[in-house]
């Protein structure tokens, strides 16, 4: 299972990076969303996987009776999912606003912060 997941994660990363390298903002956004999933799966797999045994202690017990899934990566990922969503939403709105203000959906035409004709530094004191 872990091997199969490792290959799938590689594919997730490949797709995410390929999308991020495009200059189209909306494709980059899709790339960010997929990259988030890829990282979450990576953390999940590094914590080793078990089948269908959630990390919950049965009622009335102090300790689980059988081996359970690793709860630690799950706790890390749970917050990561929500934060990843917040970031995705923020980027989406940022793209939307950039499109409205700059009329640009391509990073090549977005040069407000680093204009092409930025002046040379002065050579004096």
């Amino acid at each position: 299972m872990e091997t199969a997941l490792a290959i799938l994660i590689g594919l997730f990363f490949t797709v995410a990076i390929y999308l991020l390298l495009s200059r189209s903002l909306i494709r980059m956004l899709l790339g960010v969303a997929i990259l988030g999933n890829a990282v979450n799966l990576l953390i999940f797999t590094i914590g080793r996987v078990t089948r269908e045994v959630p990390p919950i202690v049965p009622n009335g017990q102090y300790q689980p009776l059988e081996p359970i899934a690793n709860p630690l990566p799950q706790a890390l990922i749970l917050t990561a999912i929500v934060i990843g969503f917040s970031l995705f939403a923020f980027l989406l709105v940022l793209t939307y606003r950039a499109y409205q203000e700059l009329n640009a959906d391509n990073t090549d035409t977005m040069r407000v912060a680093e204009p092409e004709d930025s002046p040379r530094p002065p050579l004096s004191y």
Binding site: P54, I56, N59, L78, T79, I81, V82
Partner: peptide
């Protein structure tokens, strides 16, 4: 706290 669930899922 005892079964699957919690603040994050509930909030969503």
């Amino acid at each position: 706290h005892n079964e699957p669930g919690g603040g994050f899922i509930g909030g969503l």
